[in-house]
Every structure is written in structure tokens, then in C-alpha cells.
Design a binder for these strands. Structure first.
Lengths: 202, 202, 202, 202
DNA sequence: AATGAATGAGGATTCATTCAT
DNA sequence: GATGAATGAATCCTCATTCAT
């Protein structure tokens, strides 16, 4: 019922964006099944129908959050991996992962959930994200120490898993000291490698 | 005196036990919210009401599985921690955790889910199980290297988290080699400690 | 699993009786639909099956309570109606009704509920109890004042209803003064009759 | 563009209203526990979900019916109480109560049920409605006769209870004569007062 | 005489989704 | 673009009842 000539607010803060953020917020502490479309819509201050208008389905909304997070995470990790000093690169990557999970708990939440659900992931490197992150880690590790082919994936996965899980577990803590300690603890895996494997001679 | 075709209890294999096992099976690959009471009852070959007769509620059934797993896990870990050689103790503990998660994927699943849900667990050592396991790990670590008070919990949590998460991720693999590799990867954290901290002189 | 020769307690306080009393107690404050067989059995300290062994069904148990109460009430009211002084008779009857409802709130509860349920009771004198009580009241009233045939039932019903309802409403009060006041208030109906109708000349 | 035989809403007679009326109808002769949401929805010709969309819960629907009735009843009673002649006021009030209960049997049904349930209502004037109605009655009675403070509430309660209960008992009768007789019977309480108490000299 | 395990029908409620406006 | 009324399938749970022991 718009009068002709009337004009909508230019920055409607697009309902779509509001929904995205509200969903991120809510999914930070609950599983998707435990968050209803009503709740998301209410939190975004729009009607339920708008969710369907913008995303088509709840699953699609969740997927988009997951994708968005994965993109953001991978982008930054890729940058950090370029550091000339591979140890420093790993440290930065882990630090960033910690920050990221703190900032987007919903992402870690969703990603873990997704990993844990399907039986299909028998190959334990199924998901694109997992594959990408571990590939990146392996790349950096290769520049640091000499690893047998067979142990590369387990090591990378361990680092990734430890970082993700521990970060998520302690993500509510605003305590930076704890963050520091956790990063160092995860880096111990790398220290262990350095102590037991021949360094990469480059 | 069973008519052919009649579908009575084949044996009074205690419906309770049948339900427990069916639930364990189903919860191994899906979150509690994603498993319905009907499904559990059907899988156990009993009626829905029997679930409520035996457990009172779905939540209670889930809790009991969690408790059962926690008890079993702690019991064995406590035994293994007694090994005179602390490094060997840690190795055995991690190995056992891997096996355990493979055998009872539902346990890890449930436990993680529970951890990830509540905001309350801000102190990241809230759950009794987490507390118990990390306490045990710290005890063993103390016999191995000298750690600052502040870093004890982060280190122990990292080991626990890495083991649990990685194990869960690769749990479908029956491949023992992979298991071995994963255990070794997790132990790298300990190797890192040994390489960077003064040994406990006992 | 009784050893031969063993003997049961002589005074088993008959489970049946225990059930009856427990049911009376519970039905005093809740509608039959709101009281489960489990609750009754638990309150009586017997198993659920015992209810069915002794009463056949929940409805039957409720019916028996109703019958028991009706019998007891009618028996006493009939005695009191015999008083030579019809006014005194009415007063005693109302007093007794008050006491009765206080002692057996479940009875009033059940009886009202039953009255209110069925559409059948279109004739508003359907139930045997109602018929009996009003008949008794009319008999006494006839000895006191001269009433038109058409107004007899309404007057008797009003007294009965007022007594039952008001008694039930204030039944939790242990306060005897209030009881007295309520009795007097109900008797006002009779006073009104006395003031406006010709006395029975006997 | 309705295909013949299609069963869409005939008119958007607001499902909410349809549900309200269907529920009133059904609750007129049965207790809330004995009426299922399915039945209400079916009677209103809408789906079960619509009940929850409009009312949130069964209890809320029941409460709203109760409130609606209480409002309507009190509004009219308040008007009638204003009559200059207090006796006539009381007569009109009782007459209206009779009509009201005949028209909305569900209201009396629900209200009684609610009164009879809780043990909390020990003070026998707990409910707002009861309090309001008795307050109104007392106000009118005060204009008619002189009553001791202590007997006011019992008298008012008796009138209210008698009217409500007797009305409900005979509500199915369409017979106006009976109505008249019942009103007169209840008014006897007032006649009794007039005969035994000093008139208010105003 | 009594039990308690088991049942299945039924009840309240939630929720993703559709659709006319 | 957006809404909100309406839906119906699915879910958790209750409960009267049965029956073998």
C-alpha cells in the first residue's frame, strides 16, 4: 500500500542481511534443529515469510552461513600461510582460528555438527573445508619439517581439530591470557614435530 | 506356545537393554534432536511406551548413555594412568580413547554436543567429565615434565579435545594404521612438551 | 515366591481399602481425568495392576466412591429428616451436608462433575441422588410451610445446590465460625419461605 | 476460482472467532480435560495448528473464554446493580445470571471447575470474579438490610453459588416457567434476610 | 492376590513450509 | 518485497488397560 511517489528508506538494512546476522547469533550456541525459523525471524525483526522469501528454506539459510564462514576463514588462512617463516605462519593461523571461532561461534558449531552427523564422511577428509584447511596446513608443515606421506594428514587433522574444538570450548572466555595459553598448547604439536623430525632443508 | 508369525518378545532380553543399545547405535551418527523416540523404539523392537516405562523421558535415556560412557571411559583411563612410565601412560590413554570412541561413537557425539550447547560452560572445565579427564591428564603430565600452573589446563584440554575430536572424525575408519598415525599425531603435543620443558626429576 | 507354610499378615489392610481411601483423597481436589491410575496406586502403596485386580477399571473405582458417598450421605440425611421440628431438621441436614463435604470433598467434587457433564440431565433431577435428596427436602419443607406443587422442586434444588456448592467452596476452611455463618446463610432460604408462605398447620 | 468440492475457507470468518465459538460450545458440556484440541479444531473447521497459531495453547484458549465470560457477566451485573430499588436490583441480577448461564453454559462450567480444582483457593474468595461479584452483591444488600460484617460474605457467596449452580443444573431447560421459579427460589434468601434483619434506613 | 512390564491409542505442542494478499 | 494466517506432519509424552508370572 505504497503511495505513488513514496520512497522506501534507501538503506533498508536488507532484511536478508538482518536475517543472516540473527541466524549467526542464534546458531552460535544452539544446534540448527534447536533454533526455529520463528526465532530467527523474530530476532531479525521480520516476519517468518521473509525467511522463505529470501532464502527459500531453513537449510539453505544454514548452508549459506556455513559457506560464508568457510570462505572468510579460508581466505584469511591462505594469506597467513604465506608468511616466510612457516612456524610463525602456523602460529598466526592458529591464532586466527581462535579469534575466528570466538567471533563466529556459530560457524564452528555448524561445521562440527555437520562433520559429526553424516556417516558418509568415512574418509575423514570428506568436507571441502576440511580438505582445504588440511591441505594448507600440510603445505606449511612441509616447509618446516620432513614428514612421511602417511602421517601428513593425521598431523594436519589433529592440529585443525584441536584448534577448532579447543577454541570452541573456550570461546566464551574473553580472557586473552587463556587464548594465548591455548594457542601455545596447540602449537606444542608443532614443537613436537620439530623435536622429532628432520627439519626441511630449504 | 507361539503361533507362527506371532511377533512377541523372542526372549526377555530386557527391553531396557535393547533400548539402550538401539539408542547408542542411533545416537552414534545423529544428534539427539535428530533421533526420534519412535525410531529408537522401533530399532529396539519395542513399543514407544516402553521407552517411557523404562527411562521416563528421552532426555533421561540420553543422559544415561552419557553417564554410562563417562563411567566406562573414566574407569579405564584411571587404570591406564597408573603406568609407571608417564609417557607410556599417556600413549595408552590416548589409544584407549581412540578405541573407545570407535566403539561408542554415540558417547563422543553426545558429549561434544552437550559441551557445545550451553553458554553456561564458560569456564571451559564445567563438565565433571572434562574436569576428571583433565585432572587425570595433569597428574600424569606432572610426572613427566615441569609445567607452569597456568598452562596445565590448556595443555590437558588440548590433548583431550584433539583426541576426542580427531577420534570422532576418523572413527568410521576401521583402518588400524590410521589409528596408529592419529595416536602418534596427538602424542606430538607431549613430544613438544618434552622438547621444550624441563623434565620432572623424580 | 511364598514358602509353603508361610502366612500372610492377617490384617493386610486390604489393598482394596487402601486404594479406595487413596482415591478419595486424590479426587478431593482434582477431577477424575486429572488423576491417573498410577497416582492412585502409588498413593495407596500398591501396584497399578492391583487397581484392576480389585476394581476392574478406573471408572468403576470412581463409581464406587460416588456410590459409597451417596449411600453415606443419604443414610444420615434420612435420619436427620426425622426430627419433629422441621426447621431444626433442615438446619441439621444442612450442617451435616457441610461437614460431609468437608470430610469427603471428593464426593462433592465427583458428584458435581457428573452433574455438569452429561447433556442427558436435561431434566435437572436426573440423578438418583438429586432425586432422593430433593424428595427428602420437600418432605421436610412440606411439614413446615405450604408450597405450590410447581415451586417445590426449584426450592429444594436451590437449597441442595447452595449447600453443596458453598460447602465445597469453603470446604478447605477449618474455621468453624465460617461454617456456622454459611449454614445460617443457606437457612435464609427457609427463613424467606417462612416469611412469605403460610405455615403448614398440622 | 474454487473447484467444486474444494474445501477452502468459505469466508474468512476469522478462524480465531470460529475457534472461540466452537470451544465455547464444546466446553459447555464437558470439562476442558475431556475436550481435545483436535475436537475443537475439527468443530471450528480449521486445522489443529490454527489453534496454536491463534491462542498459543489450549489453556490460553480456555482462559480467554473464561475472561470473556467474566467480563461480559460483570459488565451487565454492574449495570443492574444500579437500580434504585435494591430488591429489584437483586432480582434482575439473578435473572440475568440465569440467562447468562443458559446462554454460555461453558462459562459456568469452566468457572466452577476452576474453583473446585485448586487447594490454594482456601480463602473461598480467591478468584477475582468471585470477589467482584460478591462485592457487588454486598453493596446492593447493604442498601437493603443491615448485616453484620461477618455474615456479609457468606450470604453473598450463598446467593452467588446458588444462582450459578442451580442455573447450570437447569440450564438445558428452555422452559421459562422453570426459570422464573428458580429465580424466585434463590430470591428466598433475600426474603429471609428481609424478614430477620433490620431494614437499611436510608 | 498381586505385580510390573509392556502396550498403543490419543493428546498437546512445535515447526518448516505454503500461499493469498 | 514482505507478510502473517493457516497447515499438517512429526514429536514427546501420558495413561488406561492387558497379561504372564
Amino acid at each position: 500500500m505504497m503511495l505513488p511517489g513514496a520512497r522506501r528508506r534507501v538503506r533498508t538494512t536488507d532484511s536478508k542481511e538482518r536475517l543472516f546476522e540473527a541466524a549467526m547469533e542464534l546458531l552460535g550456541s544452539r544446534s540448527p534443529e534447536a533454533v526455529s525459523v520463528d526465532q530467527i525471524a523474530a530476532a531479525a525483526g521480520v516476519s517468518k515469510g521473509t525467511v522463505y522469501y529470501n532464502f527459500g528454506s531453513k537449510d539453505e539459510l544454514v548452508s549459506q552461513i556455513l559457506e560464508y564462514g568457510a570462505g572468510k576463514l579460508m581466505h584469511q588462512l591462505t594469506q597467513l600461510a604465506k608468511d616466510d617463516d612457516p612456524y610463525q605462519a602456523l602460529k598466526s593461523m592458529i591464532e586466527f582460528a581462535m579469534e575466528f571461532v570466538t567471533g563466529y561461534p556459530s560457524f564452528a558449531q555448524l561445521w562440527m555438527q555437520e562433520q559429526l552427523q553424516s556417516d558418509k564422511s568415512s574418509d575423514f577428509a570428506q568436507s571441502p573445508l576440511h580438505r582445504q584447511v588440511t591441505a594448507l596446513l600440510i603445505e606449511v608443515l612441509d616447509r618446516l619439517v620432513h614428514l612421511d606421506q602417511a602421517e601428513k594428514l593425521p598431523v594436519a587433522s589433529t592440529i585443525f581439530g584441536a584448534a577448532l574444538f579447543t577454541a570452541r570450548m573456550s570461546s566464551t572466555r574473553r580472557d586473552d591470557l587463556a587464548h594465548e595459553q591455548v594457542v601455545r598448547a596447540i602449537l606444542l604439536t608443532v614443537d613436537g614435530l620439530l623435536a622429532t623430525r628432520p627439519r626441511t632443508t630449504n
